[in-house]
């Protein structure tokens, strides 16, 4: 596949303003989309640095592949961990503040008491590390939209490194699901991407924050990618 003919779409890829401007001012990019495609193509293209091993944003990034935007899952996926942490912290606070540990010390011999305390400390240490590793994994698991494809990085710090990419020109359909009170109030949902391959494979992007934005962004990138491919093919045939 040729990968050097696609031009970056507006606003500049990878920049935070691309996301902020469109979310804060939803009508801002409408002007761009309303302008004829020929006018858009007359705009001077942004000069993007070539991607090499020094400025890659993710493993497997191609030479002329630039990030349009990226996201992580909605914070609701971390809610069970935070609830567990709050419950354990409050349980420990109640245990020590109520003086229950003193009555427990009377009931048990000092040795047995320290053995039990060591067991509890081992469990809490494990939980403490597990909580933070999950937080770090949350930051590493990203969904990236580039000018070529949609990449899902299911990366963890230990033992897991799954990358799933969907080429934009192979995307047949994008469906957004945002049903229920909680999803609507907290503004997250699912985006299902159906591929045009023979297997009709689908990819479900779960717990996506602001799914409407990414739904529009994927469709927009797909349109621009396909039109650029057609343009290149047309140029090649005329030559």
């Amino acid at each position: 596949m040729r990968d050097d003919f696609i031009k970056p779409i507006n606003p500049p890829p990878g920049s935070s303003t691309a996301i902020e401007e469109e979310i804060l001012q939803p009508g801002l990019n409408k002007e761009i989309s309303k302008t004829p495609r020929t006018m858009q193509s007359q705009q001077p293209p942004e000069i993007q640095p070539e991607i090499d091993h020094t400025n890659k944003n993710f493993k497997g990034q191609q030479k002329h592949e630039h990030i349009i935007c990226f996201t992580r899952k909605h914070w609701i996926v971390l809610a069970p961990y935070f609830v567990g942490l709050i419950l354990i912290s409050s349980g420990l606070a109640v245990f020590f503040m109520s003086g229950f540990h003193k009555s427990l010390a009377v009931l048990m011999s000092p040795i047995a008491y320290r053995v039990v305390a060591l067991g509890v400390i081992i469990i809490l240490t494990y939980y403490f590390h597990r909580f933070f590793v999950r937080l770090f994994n949350y930051y590493l698991q990203t969904i990236i939209i580039t000018n070529f494809r949609v990449v899902c990085l299911e990366m963890t710090l230990y033992f897991n490194n799954v990358r799933d990419s969907m080429d934009l020109h192979e995307i047949q359909d994008v469906v957004i699901h945002q049903e229920g009170v909680i999803k609507t109030l907290l503004n997250f949902g699912e985006v299902t991407i159906t591929m045009s391959s023979s297997s009709n494979a689908t990819k479900l992007l779960r717990y996506l924050p602001n799914p409407e934005y990414y739904f529009r962004k994927i469709n927009k990138c797909k349109r621009e990618y396909i039109s650029a491919r057609r343009q290149v093919k047309a140029d090649e045939t005329t030559k």
């Binding site: 996301i19 590793v133 930051y139 710090l157």
Partner: peptide, 25 residues
């Protein structure tokens, strides 16, 4: 903890993202 931090910073220094308030927790 040391190993975790080392692995984390090894990864995020190699593959950088320009974070925004929409991508942070």
């Amino acid at each position: 903890a040391g190993l975790t931090i080392w692995r984390l910073y090894y990864y995020i220094r190699r593959y950088r993202f320009s974070e925004t308030k929409y991508t942070l927790l």
